[in-house]
Each structure stands twice: as C-alpha cells, then as structure tokens.
C-alpha cells in the first residue's frame, strides 16, 4: 500500500514522476477536460486542525477525477478526541473510504495513522512536522514557472523555525541541488539540526544583498504568537514585508511564492507585478493532489 507521509520518503525520481503526472491533470483541474478515473472511490478527509484551502483543494482534486469525499472537520474531531484514540478513529474511518487525508496537531500522527489504516494515508500536515503535498505543489510551481528545478537559487524568508512548510520544502530543495538563502530574524532562524541534515549550499543572508541573484523568493508568515510582546513582533515583522519597491532590483523572471494565507508580509502592490505567483501556486495544489490521489488509489 502506498502512503504519502513525509517528503523524505520520496527520491528525485518519485518527485519527478508525480510532477509529470500533475502536468497531465492540469487541464482537468481547470475544468477543461472531464476525467472519471476515481469514480466509485471515496476519500476521507480527517482534519483534526482547522484548514480551509488544503481540505478544499483535496476535495476539488477528488471530485475533478470523479470521486467522492467524506469530511470530518476540526470541530467534529475535537469531540472524537475526547473519547477515542487516533488509532481507533483511523481503524474505523479506513473501513469507510479508499484513502485518508489527515491533518493533526501532533508530529508523527500521519505515520502512526498509516500504521493503523487499511487504506492509503496522505499527510496534510502534522504539527510542526511534515506537509509533503504542499512541498510537491511548491516544487511543481518552481518547475512550471522557472522551467526547471535543478540549479535554482531560492531565498526562504520569514518564520523558518516553526514553519512546517519550510521544513518539508528545504529537504526537497536539497535533492535538486538548489542554492538556498535563509532570510529570517535570529529568533526565527532555521534550526541547526535541519541545516546539518539537509547539507548542500545553504547560507544566511539579507534580502537586499541577494534580491538581484535569486530565481525564487519564498515568503512565509511571521506569526504574532511566536513573540513575547507585540512591540517585538511589530519591529520584526515590519522588516520582513515585501512591497513592489522591494522587488525593483529583482531579475525579470524572479517569482514570489507564499503558501497562503498571507497576513501583511506581502503587500497587495506585489500582486500586480510580474513576480507574483502565489495564487497560481495555490491553484497548482489541485493537479498535484490529483496526481497523488490517483497514484495512491489506482
């Protein structure tokens, strides 16, 4: 049985295969072509933490391929959590459907779910741990928008300490020999053990020093609750805000990505520039998840 738990379970070939498959589904994702390859299949969405776009994106991907979806929302999950173990919930729900998508606040929950499931499990985020489908759609975006994955220079900016998106992504970037710059306040720097694990070419930098060199600027949210006081948050978050002005020295083809939702780290003035790709990136989640769903269920 195939599960998708961590990006580290995949090698370059696996990733390239999924991205290629996603490309074949892109017109289906846009509604330009009808496909019913998952007709009769049911996907169980188990969201123990609130999520709108990831859950919707999976739901759309499943429905565009002719399949059906059952949902357990965070609110329902909290009542389940009072009386039932995750192991039991998974054993029960895997009897109802052909694959499970899980988001859970505890790290490793998806791997544990897979061990208790009779159907494939896809990790849609486990605490500060992994979020492999986000990583795959990020890679797909880079490949589509920059034309390649190998040899890209990318800057990761914002909360690099707690962001599971970043932790997942950086491991995959290293597989494609990308040059990586880390731009963050010291308090939110990427943990040293992750830097050691990833290896490759990783450097801390300031955005103004590398803006003209990079192919991709990947921005993440700096969360208020990570700071002891609001004053400190304001000071830090202000210096990590992208505006159209910030991007003036960027290369023509440089793209700005963001896992969304954004708060104020990317000013709306950026939306109209040739660099903005975050909404496109969000759309790419659909064909990528179609590729993953068809891969685990067929």
């Amino acid at each position: 049985m195939k599960h998708l738990i961590s990006i580290t379970d995949l090698d370059r070939e696996d990733i390239s295969y999924i991205l290629k498959k996603a490309e074949e589904f892109e017109d289906v994702a846009m509604g330009k072509r009808k496909l019913r390859i998952l007709e009769g299949k049911i996907l169980g969405n188990l969201f123990f933490e609130p999520s709108t776009r990831t859950r919707m994106s999976f739901e759309v991907a499943m429905k565009r391929l002719g399949g059906d979806v059952i949902n357990m929302t965070a609110q329902e999950a909290s009542s389940v959590a009072k009386g039932e173990t995750l192991a039991d919930t998974i054993r029960v729900v895997s009897g109802y459907c052909d694959a499970i998508v899980i988001r859970h606040p505890l790290e490793g929950a998806a791997r544990f779910a897979a061990e208790n499931s009779s159907v494939p499990v896809i990790n849609a985020g486990d605490g500060a741990g992994q979020h492999p489908t986000q990583t795959l759609l990020d890679l797909y975006t880079i490949k589509k928008e920059c034309g390649r994955l190998d040899g890209i220079t990318i800057a990761l900016m914002g909360d690099l300490k707690y962001s599971r998106t970043i932790h997942s992504l950086i491991k995959a970037l290293a597989l494609f020999e990308m040059k990586i710059y880390l731009i963050s306040p010291e308090a939110l720097a990427l943990p040293e053990d992750i830097i050691e694990d990833v290896g490759g070419e990783i450097k801390k930098a300031r955005l103004e020093d590398v803006i003209s060199e990079i192919d991709v600027l990947y921005v993440t949210r700096i969360q208020k609750e990570r700071f002891p006081d609001e004053e400190e948050y304001r000071k830090v978050s202000g210096s990590y805000r992208i505006t159209a002005e910030t991007l003036k020295k960027a290369k023509d083809g440089m793209i700005v990505m963001h896992p969304l939702p954004r708060v104020d780290e990317i000013h709306p003035s950026v939306d109209a520039t040739k660099h903005a790709r975050y909404f496109q990136q969000s759309f790419y989640g659909v064909p990528v998840r179609m590729a993953i769903l068809s891969e685990v269920m067929l």
């Binding site: 173990t85 995750l86 192991a87 505890l106 790290e107 490793g108 791997r111 544990f112 605490g127 741990g129």
Partner: peptide, 27 residues
C-alpha cells in the same frame, strides 16, 4: 500521546563511538 497504543521507536546511528537516535514518528 497518552492512551494511544503506540510503541516509541528510534533509529540508531553510531559515528566514532557517538550514538544518536532519531524518532520514527516525528524525526
């Protein structure tokens, strides 16, 4: 997690007599 039927599992690595472990679940 309390009450989950789970056995903590670790992968062991030894380098120059230094032993380290990595959690199977959270890494």
């Amino acid at each position: 997690a309390e009450r989950e039927p789970i056995k903590p599992r670790f992968y062991i690595k030894t380098e120059e007599m230094k032993v380290t472990a990595r959690c199977h679940y959270c890494g």
